[in-house]
Design a binder for these strands. Structure first.
Length: 884
RNA sequence: GGGUUUGUAGCUCAGUUGGUUAGAGCGCACGCUUCACACGCGUGAGGUCAGAGGUUCGAAUCCUCUCAAGCCCACCA
């Protein structure tokens, strides 16, 4: 017996179906010919992370695409992978080790990295399992990791190539330093937030006079490192001061007053203290005026010895208090005002970012951005939604150099070595010759210094920004820089799907590096999904405690329900408000589909079933469902074409629940057309498979109860519309049938007719009479009628409830049940509503401009409506007369 | 400061190139053990389409402005 459970039980089904797919190597891409391939790289998940809703939406959308393209007959390569996620992973492992009382420094670099690898191996299995749980039909045989051998080789190659092209350089600059992570960050890894702070006004006196300038600052502690005060060259207030020397309070250092147009005379006092070591603008002004740079804040966020004996070693916030107090004591603090300003935070740990001067590695972005822009402007990359193209190009237009070195241990160590040969005879004569400081950039570790032959070379300790390796992802995953078969077959990628929050972090870098290294756009389409938010539209975060665990949702409602809840009612690039109710709603839908199928299989019986590709319709309902189905197929395919997955899913659901279950199945229950049922159900399963892979695959098995090795639904062909079946006339006729049934049900409800009671009905159907007659048994069943008379027209029916719907006259002779008062009230309400409608139409038609200028078909439609409504009103009025 | 998105029923959202009495789901109300499904079925209530102008015979839809919320970018000390 082909048993199907009454309710869909996702947990059992899912593990069984997942095994089936795995055994069939569903996700495996053939990769023999370049033609007819579809390539998509999974955004590499943080290897130590656990599945969250961001992954869930990514995997859902990508799997929908992959399954759809596969069913369209493409050789689909959806390549999964994980990211070593430099800072994030190092932070996590460090924290765990500290809990055991082990510090990173005690362990040493080599041992620490070993520990991280252990960690990686353990958690890699977890995230991979979770990806599988989502139903992801990706190609595990080609899985990649940003730090595996092939990817590392690609990274080294890319670095060395860029260095050779002079697109990578080393320089001492003011960079973003995270005092907690103890590393520099790139500009986009700094999140700016408006914060309430103070503006401190400090008075600086001109040397040996009692004249003074007042400067305004939000960070008074940096005054210890001031090396000038700047004013706008045209500022009348300060003309006399330019060129003079001021005495820096506390420190008592002499600093000049310089004139610089970058100073805004309207801000504060119009005079700015200049701290080149700790502020980006100050650094620039310092450079133009050749000012010295004094570092008063160290890498741990503590004051350095240059800050003076009194402050050395103090953490920043303490130093601020101390400096302010000191200034106040000596009478140099003018006032303090409240002031909101933007403060940079580390995107990984939220610590306040310190601008520090430091020697780092950078990518020169201008030439790379230009190539990327050219590609986009030529239209070689399509953005979905299109508005992101603008954002993308604007960012590239204003690009800054990318700081790529990180002071971490976990990552791709720079392929850079330094010759540190110490002069054997450190006398003045030999120093130059023997103290070789040669830098070597090489894909393979150099054995000796090419300049001086020294054997003890020291490798640069820094590693690369995680996003450097991710930037190579579309081709490094395919074996690049080797010209592999996969690279030749699957590059460029078809679609890049990810969240819009990493447009600059990731997408832009891939486009630039792809253009640079492969000479083409790495993908044809960029699809960006929105962020998943909570019911109130807030970001989900641990601190708010509003996060929903996708795995818990899977446990409770099944993966299919979770997937649907993430796509239905969502549009590309728009944030999605997520809630558990959405998942329950979708669980209900999956169950509905399950039960509709259960019914169909029950009708079909246990015999071997052929699924007919184009079975013959028997009556109006058959023709109608075929018309609706093929219209749906057409629309679903169109929605897919424009990446409107939510729209496609919603249309399918609407069809299944309303057209198929509520009407078709109900109306054909007495005379089911087995072949047609099998066909429609099969098409529904195929259509919805990309969205609801598990339940549909399980149901598909039921078509082949005795087959040893039935074909997978996942490898079926996606339905194509048989347009000949789309028939507006049939749909209109069925609409009349539906209208009659609904009208009778409505009246029954209003008149409180018990559901079980069968009543009689008379319908005067006019031109609809011929086909309605044929449907009378169905109408009787669904409207619970004891008898139904359908005529073109006839005399008034006494003692009956009357309903005028869609040009029909419907009479329900309820005899004793009829209360004239209630019926009168009901008819009057209907009359009133209809009269309002009539007024609207009359007003329109009375407008000569409308009748003269609107297209003829619109005017005609309006006239037809008028007639229709007038007739209805007349009928209601007649009826009311009878009731007196 | 620049850019951008959103504002439609209590909530989440559909509304194609302007032409129906503006739709769906959830929630709500009433009624149903109808033999696929109570994770269900039927019926219903509920909206000045953020506001103000404008274009048009006709605007939720196009234009302008205003208001509100969100996001991105920017070196305002």
């Amino acid at each position: 017996m082909n048993e199907i459970t009454k309710a869909y039980l996702p947990n059992e089904v899912e593990s069984e179906i997942a095994q089936k797919w795995a055994a069939a190597e569903l996700g495996h891409a053939v990769g023999k010919v370049k033609k007819n391939v579809f390539t998509m790289m999974m955004p590499p998940a943080n290897v130590t992370g656990a599945l969250h809703l961001g992954h869930a939406i990514t995997l859902t959308i990508e799997d929908i695409l992959a399954r759809f393209e596969r069913m369209k007959g493409k050789d689909v390569l959806w390549l999964p992978g994980t990211d070593h996620a430099g800072i994030a992973t190092q932070n996590v492992v460090e924290k765990r080790l500290l809990e055991k009382g082990i510090s990173r420094d005690n362990l040493g670099r080599e041992k620490f990295v070993e520990k991280v690898w252990e960690w990686k191996d353990k958690y890699h299995a977890r995230i991979s399992d979770q990806i599988k749980k989502m139903g992801a039909s990706c190609d595990w045989s080609r899985e990649a990791f940003t730090l595996d051998d092939d990817r590392s080789a690609a990274v080294t190659h890319a670095f060395v190539e860029l260095y050779k092209k002079k697109l990578i350089y080393r320089d001492k600059k003011l960079v973003n330093w995270c005092p907690r992570c103890q590393t520099v960050l790139s500009d986009i890894e700094v999140e700016h937030r408006e914060e309430e702070g103070n503006l401190y006004f400090i008075r600086y006196f001109v040397s040996a006079t009692d004249r003074s300038i007042c400067v305004a600052t939000t960070r008074p502690e940096t005054m210890l490192g001031d090396t000038a005060v700047a004013v706008h060259p045209d500022d009348r207030r300060y003309q006399d001061f330019i060129g003079k020397t001021l005495i820096l309070p506390i420190v008592n250092r002499e600093i000049p007053v310089v004139a610089d147009a970058r100073v805004d005379p309207k801000f504060g006092t119009g005079a700015v203290k200049i701290t080149p070591a700790h502020d980006p603008l100050d650094a620039e002004i310092g450079r133009t005026h050749k000012l010295p740079s004094i570092v008063v804040i160290g890498p741990h966020g503590k004051m350095t010895k240059h800050a003076g004996r009194r402050f050395v070693g103090m953490p920043l916030h303490e130093a601020r208090k101390a400096v302010v107090k000191y200034l106040d004591d000596i009478g140099n603090l003018e006032k303090i005002e409240k002031h909101a300003h933007s403060v940079g935070h580390c995107s990984r740990c939220d610590a306040t970012i310190e601008p520090l001067e430091s020697m780092q590695w950078f990518v020169k972005m201008q030439p790379l951005a230009e190539k990327a822009l050219k590609i986009v402007k030529k239209g070689q990359i399509e953005f979905v939604p299109a508005r992101f193209e603008k954002e993308f190009t604007r960012w590239l237009d204003e690009i800054h150099d990318w700081c790529i070195s990180r002071q971490l241990w976990w990552g791709h160590q720079l392929p850079v070595w330094y010759c540190k040969k110490v002069p054997e005879f450190a006398d003045k004569k030999n120093k130059k010759k023997e103290g070789c400081q040669r830098m070597i950039v090489s894909e393979t570790p150099p054995k000796k210094c090419p300049t001086c032959g020294n054997l003890s070379l020291v490798r640069d300790a820094d590693v690369l920004d995680t996003w450097f390796s991710s930037g190579l992802w579309p081709f490094a995953t395919l074996g690049w820089p080797k010209n592999t078969k996969d690279f030749k077959t699957f590059y460029p990628n078809s679609v890049l799907e990810t969240g819009y929050d990493i447009l600059f972090f990731w997408v832009a870098r891939m486009v630039m590096l792809g253009a640079e290294f492969t000479g083409k756009a790495p993908f044809k389409t960029v699809y960006l999904h929105g962020l998943v938010r909570d019911e109130q539209g807030r970001k989900m975060s641990k601190s708010l405690g509003n996060g929903i665990d996708p795995l818990a949702m899977i446990e409770k409602y099944g993966t299919d329900a979770l997937r649907l809840s993430l796509v239905v009612g969502s549009t590309p690039g728009t944030d999605l408000k997520f809630s558990e109710t959405k998942v329950t709603g979708q669980r209900n839908f999956v169950n509905k589909l399950w039960n509709a199928s259960r019914y169909v299989f029950g009708v079909l019986g246990d015999k071997k079933i052929e699924i007919p590709s184009d079975p013959a319709p028997h009556g109006l309902p058959d023709r109608w469902i075929l018309s609706r189905l093929n219209r749906l197929i057409l629309e679903a395919n169109q929605s897919f074409e424009k990446y409107a997955f939510g729209e496609a899913a919603a249309k399918i659901q609407e069809f299944v629940w309303s057209d198929f279950c509520d009407w078709y199945l109900e109306i054909t229950k007495d005379t089911p057309n087995k072949k047609l049922l099998a066909h429609v159900l099969a098409q529904i399963l195929r259509l919805s498979h990309p969205f609801i892979p598990f339940a549909t695959e399980k149901l598909w098995e039921k078509f082949f109860p005795n087959a040893k090795k039935p074909k997978l639904l996942a490898t079926e062909k996606y339905p194509r519309s048989l347009k000949a079946h789309i028939n507006p006339k049939i749909e209109e006729e069925m609409q009349i049938v539906i209208a009659i049934i609904s009208a009778i049900r409505s009246v029954r409800n209003e008149m409180n007719v018990e559901p079980a009671r069968q009543i009689a009905a008379v319908v005067y159907a006019g031109k609809f009479e011929p086909f309605l007659k044929k449907q009378s048994s169905e109408i009787k069943k669904l409207a619970r009628l004891s008898s139904l008379v359908v005529k073109k027209s006839g005399k008034k029916v006494e003692n009956a409830v009357a309903k005028f719907e869609a040009g029909l006259e419907i009479y329900l002779p309820l005899a004793k049940l009829l209360d004239p008062k209630v019926e009168k009230k009901r008819l009057k309400a209907d009359l009133k509503e209809t009269e309002i409608y009539l007024a609207v139409i009359q007003k329109k038609l009375a407008n000569e401009d409308f009748t003269a200028r609107a297209p003829k078909n619109v005017v005609d439609a309006e006239r037809a409506k008028l007639q229709f409504v007038e007739e209805k009103i007349q009928k209601i009025e007649e009826r009311l007369k009878i009731l007196k």
